[in-house]
Amino acid sequence: MTETSTSAVARSVVVTGGNRGIGRAIVEKFLAGGHRVASFDMGGEPPEGVLGVTCNVTDSEQVDAAFKAAEEANGPVEVLIANAGITKDTLILRMSDADWDAVINVNLTGAFRVAKRAAKSMIRGKWGRIVFTGSVVGLYGSAGQVNYSSSKAALVGMARSLTRELGSRGVTANVVAPGFIETDMTAVLPEDVIARYLASIPAARLGQPSEVASAVAFLASEEAGFISGAVIPVDGGLGMGH
């Protein structure tokens, strides 16, 4: 295959939440690079040429079954992009236990489950790339997003702990932290909220899913083998230093 920015070698890739928004852009990036890609999602259709697997990342049995399907089709998983995520935004005094639990279960516990499952084949193969989709609000904070920002901040600790556990096996673990990206998730925000954030983003615009996908692809590449435990912001400068 032709060498690309994703990798010089075709890899077996799993992307969770890969049928929409940032996840879909990531899937398309790897597919264009000649990789064998499986998208785990709860709805929607993946791009043509991608193995679509229905998977709820909050269910351990579904996660295991999805990985088995990906492995049978594409070989042992070498690259995992843990991207599945949800929001249930409200101020803390209005946030229910269910709002908290739902977001933590998908965004954090779900990431743990897929990382644990993917690590098995990566350790055996002595090569692997794990990339978590975090968020600028994971370290920057955001009113009304205590559950979401907490789940994304915790991914940094997860990536850095995995780096210490798996680094000697040729496995890296990193976090890409998008800012405000034009997706269905940001489309529901009120105009005044969008305007307020645009005023604070040095780039003076929202990001594109493809820009996040490019950062993810680099971290999953051969060239990024000495980068691990890092948080890579893709936020137009919004969270500088946080």
Results as ranks from 00 to 15, higher is better:
T4H: 15
S5F: 13
S5H: 15
T6Q: 09
S7L: 10
V9C: 03
S12T: 07
V13P: 11
V14A: 10
V15N: 02
G17E: 10
I22D: 00
G23W: 06
A25W: 07
A25H: 04
I26H: 03
V27I: 13
E28T: 06
K29D: 15
A32C: 08
S39T: 09
S39F: 02
D41L: 05
M42K: 06
M42W: 00
G44I: 07
G44H: 05
E48Q: 14
G49C: 11
V53E: 00
C55G: 03
T58W: 02
D59M: 02
S60Y: 01
Q62E: 11
Q62S: 08
A66P: 01
A66E: 00
K68N: 02
A73Y: 00
E78H: 07
V79R: 09
L80F: 12
L80D: 08
I81V: 15
I86V: 15
T87I: 11
T87S: 12
K88Y: 13
K88L: 15
D89S: 10
D89I: 00
R94S: 13
M95R: 02
M95K: 06
M95N: 08
D99V: 11
D99N: 12
W100A: 04
W100Q: 04
A102H: 06
N105K: 06
G110A: 03
G110H: 01
F112E: 00
F112I: 00
F112C: 00
V114A: 02
K116R: 14
K116F: 03
R117N: 01
A118P: 09
S121K: 10
I123F: 14
I123G: 09
I123D: 14
I123K: 15
R124N: 15
G128Q: 07
G128S: 13
R129Q: 08
R129H: 10
I130N: 14
I130T: 14
V131A: 08
F132R: 07
F132K: 05
T133A: 11
S135Q: 10
S135A: 13
V136L: 12
G138L: 13
L139W: 12
A143Y: 13
S149A: 14
A153W: 02
A154K: 02
L155D: 02
L155Y: 05
G157N: 05
M158Y: 04
M158R: 02
A159L: 04
A159V: 11
R160M: 11
R164Y: 02
E165H: 10
E165C: 06
L166P: 12
G167I: 07
G170P: 14
V175S: 11
A177Q: 12
A177G: 11
I181R: 12
E182G: 04
E182A: 13
D184T: 03
M185C: 02
T186F: 05
T186I: 01
E191W: 05
V193T: 14
A195C: 05
A195W: 10
R196N: 13
Y197Q: 05
A199D: 15
A199T: 01
L206S: 04
Q208E: 12
S210Q: 15
V212E: 05
A213E: 09
V216T: 04
S221M: 08
S221T: 08
S221D: 11
G225Q: 13
G229T: 04
V231G: 09
I232G: 08
P233E: 08
D235L: 09
L238E: 12
G239V: 03
